[in-house]
């Protein structure tokens, strides 16, 4: 089996979908000649031409809005926003137009499109190259939200996103783009949106995370194993819809749970998951569900490594839950 990085998995998935379906087009800033600033669309314009890999003006509103017009007219656009931090000029397009088109038209018009964006911290980017704005999108009815953490998942989920009949916000933690190489089958496969992955089975505590924070969460699980604590690790992968069944089954088994994410805590995905656990399986809990999250400050530049949940912070929270 070939090995590949997450960024190579993005290229591979787009290439496969473009070759399968000529309605699929890629569009965004620098995606063509340059191959994307992270090289996530490298080689596609040479292969498919400038009509199917469109270098757009520097305008997120134009990229997302035009992608919607193309989608409603029968194409399957994959729009790239260069950094998740720059989605906000296109936020009105996502919230007012893209998310609500199917609903407001009573199902007459639809928006089968993907909005890809590199997200998250850890690359010394300061607050305009490091944010994790997934809660905005999950909070907006009508958008599916996916955050990947492995090359294998990236390929399978991105292909599912392209084939989905709904708009999918697809977030790629940029610090993982080249951090992990893994074996990926040579034949194609799909991973359904809405299903979590159990990365490690365990019986004493559930560690639920997604995206970039999966790295620290898995390290914490290894350390816990070293001191005799069996941790179950769940990667949500899809945030809207998220896999409640898998999460609740795990918590019912372990009775102890942490939800880990580098996004700010206030009104976050971690909060939603923790609240659902408290509402639905309180009787199974041996301790309150704790959140280990980014802080409610703008993403700092100098304190880049401290802002995101560290292994130590995860372990401290685990201790609180285990000792409760």
């Amino acid at each position: 089996m070939p090995t590949m990085t997450m960024v190579q998995a993005v290229v591979q998935a787009l290439d496969e979908e473009m070759s399968r379906d000529n309605r699929v087009v890629v569009m965004g800033e620098d995606v063509g000649k340059r191959g994307g600033v992270f090289l996530a669309t490298e080689g596609l314009q040479q292969k498919y031409g400038p009509d199917r890999v469109i270098d757009t003006p520097l305008s997120e509103a134009a990229i997302i809005g035009a992608a919607l017009g193309m989608a409603s007219h029968g194409m399957r656009p994959v729009a790239e926003v260069q950094f998740a931090d720059y989605v906000f000029p296109g936020f009105d397009q996502l919230v007012s137009q893209v998310a609500k088109l199917r609903y407001r038209s009573g199902g007459q018009f639809t928006a089968p499109m993907v909005i890809r964006m590199p997200s998250g911290g850890g690359v010394r980017g300061g607050h305009h190259h490091s944010q994790s704005p997934e809660a905005h999108f999950a909070h907006t009815a009508g958008l599916k939200v996916v955050v990947v953490s492995t090359p294998y998942d990236t390929r399978g989920l991105l292909k599912s996103a392209v084939r989905d009949d709904n708009p999918v916000v697809f977030m790629e933690p940029k610090r993982l783009y080249r951090a992990i190489k893994e074996e990926v089958p040579s034949q194609e496969y799909l991973i359904p949106i809405g299903e979590a992955a159990i990365r490690k089975e365990g019986k004493d505590i559930s560690l639920i995370s997604y995206g970039g924070s999966m790295v620290e969460t898995q390290k914490a699980a290894e350390e816990l194993e070293g001191v005799g604590v069996s941790a179950e690790v769940i990667d949500l992968r899809s945030l809207m819809p998220w896999d409640k069944e898998t999460v609740l089954a795990s918590v019912a088994k372990t009775g102890r749970v942490l939800v880990v994410s580098e996004a700010p805590r206030m009104a976050s995905i971690a909060s939603e998951v923790a609240a659902t656990i408290a509402e639905e399986v309180l009787d199974s809990l041996e301790a309150p569900p704790l959140r280990v999250t980014g802080f409610d400050t703008p993403y700092p530049y100098a304190q880049d490594k401290v802002y995101m949940p560290t292994v130590t912070r995860i372990l401290n929270a685990a201790k609180r839950v285990l000792d409760y």
């Binding site: 009509d51 134009a62 017009g69 409603s72």
Partner: peptide
């Protein structure tokens, strides 16, 4: 907010 989608539909018309 419908101006970029109108542009996108036109781009699709041209491409197709």
């Amino acid at each position: 907010s419908h101006v970029p989608p109108a542009a996108g539909a036109a781009i699709s018309m041209k491409l197709q």
